[in-house]
């Protein structure tokens, strides 16, 4: 075991006024804004430069499956409140409730990916791969990257629900902070989808 321990994981850092973990996750989210921002900017550039969007004609809402995407929006919004309730349960000292809400969050995350699987499968059956045209390139890049973020969230949340929850027995506040940081990430993933949904499916 290493003797090196990251300081100020529970108490606020005297300079920033917040624990280091929280400051770190916000810096990470700032970099994520740049990542998705660059892709959104590219999307705007490609779209405004195209004579027609989608290139093969019609409307985005006719090509993509709006009911499934609406369902996925509902799933992600629901997972956001279950995540915040998981954190609130920690703050109230109720570990069983935390496990219930975190379990629900993970289940909903898998639900989102299953719906996405059906969406992608249908497109592949029609022979619509990212190389089909710019519309599908943008669609698969943005939703694919977002899907990878969902996977990342599942890994972190599963850790906190499983082996990571042992920390509760020794340092509740530290564990609660970890759940809060995972929550900040998860809400950001929801926030990205809030913009992806209308931009890709409805407009």
């Amino acid at each position: 075991m290493s003797d090196t321990v990251i300081p100020y994981m529970v108490k606020p850092h005297p300079v920033t006024g917040i624990p280091n973990g929280k400051f770190g996750i916000w810096l990470f989210l700032a970099s994520e804004v740049m990542l998705f921002g660059a892709l959104f900017s590219s999307y705007v550039l490609i779209r405004t430069g195209a004579p027609h969007w989608p290139p093969e004609g019609g409307l985005s809402s006719e090509i993509l499956n709006v009911p499934l995407a609406t369902l996925n929006t509902g799933i992600l919004i629901t997972s956001s409140i279950t995540m915040v309730l998981a954190w609130a349960s920690c703050k109230l000292g109720e570990l069983p409730k935390f496990k219930l809400w975190m379990g629900a969050t993970i289940l909903l995350s898998f639900g989102f990916l299953i719906v996405k699987y059906f969406e992608y499968s249908h497109k592949f059956e029609l022979g619509h791969y990212p190389s089909h045209d710019n519309f599908y390139a943008v669609y698969f890049t943005l939703t694919g990257l977002h899907g990878v973020h969902i996977l990342g969230g599942i890994v972190v949340n599963s850790y906190l629900l499983g082996p990571g929850s042992k920390l509760w027995a020794t340092d509740r506040e530290h564990f609660t902070n970890r759940v809060e940081n995972a929550g900040l990430y998860w809400h950001f993933v929801d926030l990205v989808w809030i913009f992806l949904f209308p931009c890709l499916y409805l407009l």
């Binding site: 990251i6 300081p7 108490k11 530290h174």
Partner: peptide
Amino acid sequence: MTETAQESSHHESPH
């Protein structure tokens, strides 16, 4: 890292 050792044994009461 005494600061952290102190933290881990100290649970701040919520505000």
